[in-house]
Amino acid sequence: MIQQPEFDVLARGARKQLRVIGALVIRELQSRFGRHNIGFLWFLVEPLLLAGGVSLMTYTSHTAIPEGLASLPFHLVGYIAYMQFRTNANRAASIILSNRVLMYHHQVTMPDIVLAGTILELGATLCALILFTGIFAWFGLSPAPERPLLLVGGMLLMWWYTTGLAMIICALGQYSETVDRLVHPFTYLSLPFSGMFFRVEWLPPELREAAQWLPLPQITEIVRQGVWGDLHSDYLHPFYIISQAAVLTFLGLLGLRVARHRVRFE
């Protein structure tokens, strides 16, 4: 009986935050993809161009992809998984600067702004993934996602991991503009290590041991297993990735709390 009011307060707080994040997602949607859907079409063009280019290189150099996988879907699925990482990390340091006017409304907080950005990215990349795998299945290049839950689960894991990372970058970004400049080359340099171009199973044994410590190739592997259901990996450690994501999120939330007083308003 006594618990009731406390629960009410909690529920009301949760509803309020959902409302705020929803409004922020719509606001992000408007400025990133525009009011017309042409913006989302452009969003699809980039991964297609990149994966298409890589496939053209593998085709002209007669490099076969192991396990009989088709180059285009293999690279495209890998790249879309990486896109969440890249966009969320790249935008994190400057996202407050471009949204701080909204913090004039006291219910809009820094974690809300970061979350809205990464949720939108999750939605957009998931749509792109479903659309492309559907088209590839239509052309017989790859199966229609055979374990859809694993595909969605992998993308969710990437969202969680990169949201924690984005919060940390965002907090650090309030202390120095250098953070924003360093993040961009870092995300590009991390592309070869992301798992876009390989499966851990295909690496030489000594590299496999090291690759196990990287979360990105593992998450990419989970997403790929969602499409090609018979893929199997001995190098998946979901608990390890979840712990990393949890630690990053905790540090990120803490960092944003400390960095709040660094945000300047005109």
Binding site: R27, Q30, S31, N99, V101, L102, H105, F265
Partner: peptide, 12 residues
Amino acid sequence: FGGVHGALTGAD
């Protein structure tokens, strides 16, 4: 300054 976002329309 503040409270309204420059990239959005007044209605948005």
